[in-house]
């Protein structure tokens, strides 16, 4: 395994208990993972703990990664975000602002494409005009890939409330984009 090996190759090696491969994966992915997690959590120690848990989980679960199942980075982010959430469930932790993240089990690539165009389109402005709780539910489900149920847990609301908010958010976006 070298620095040129693909993520999928490295994950296969990790599944075969190759610590060196895990190290390469770590060097490649930990920096951006930290950055994105830090946007969602003000406590750097909690972020480090989440990164640590993530790679321990990768060591254990690398065999579950399926190449057809999407990009490795997205798979890793799913794990990282879940780990952060469970770290933060412990008392005494704080989120940054209202925008809470989720993770990407079900990253909807179509929505990703939409999001990539946020910068230039009306969607960005529309998102900015959404109320914070509606934006949070969009981010948790569309961007961080949580299921509605997980997003509800994360945002501390009932599942029904989360569903309603998601519907309202979609309706509002359609309205704003119309």
């Amino acid at each position: 395994m070298t620095e040129q090996s693909s993520d999928a190759q490295l994950l296969r090696a990790v599944a075969a208990e190759d610590m060196g491969a895990l190290r390469l994966l770590y060097l490649r992915h930990a920096p951006w993972m930290r950055l994105r997690l830090a946007r969602r959590c003000a406590d750097p120690d909690a972020v480090d703990a989440a990164v640590q848990d993530t790679f321990v989980a990768v060591w254990r679960d690398a065999h579950r990664y399926r190449e057809g199942g999407g990009e490795a980075a997205a798979w890793l982010w799913t794990i990282a975000f879940r780990r952060l959430v469970s770290t933060l469930r412990r008392p005494g932790q704080r989120w940054v602002g209202d925008a809470t993240g989720g993770d990407d089990e079900t990253v909807p690539s179509a929505e990703d494409l939409v999001l990539l165009r946020i910068e230039h389109g009306d969607l960005g402005a529309a998102l900015d005009r959404l109320s914070p709780e509606l934006r949070a539910i969009i981010q948790a489900t569309a961007l961080d890939g949580l299921t509605v149920r997980e997003a509800a847990l994360l945002l501390g609301v009932a599942e029904g409330t989360a569903k309603t908010r998601l519907m309202r958010a979609r309706a509002r976006l359609r309205e704003l984009l119309a």
């Binding site: 930290r34 990703d112 900015d128």
Partner: peptide, 30 residues
């Protein structure tokens, strides 16, 4: 950044290996 731009960066970094690699690393911490 505004929320929408944060989301844009998130989505882009997720999809773009080059931008992921360009994120500076805090070596000691890592």
């Amino acid at each position: 950044l505004t929320p929408s731009r944060v989301m844009a960066v998130d989505a882009h970094v997720q999809a773009c290996a080059a931008c992921r690699a360009a994120v500076p690393a805090d070596t000691a911490r890592l």
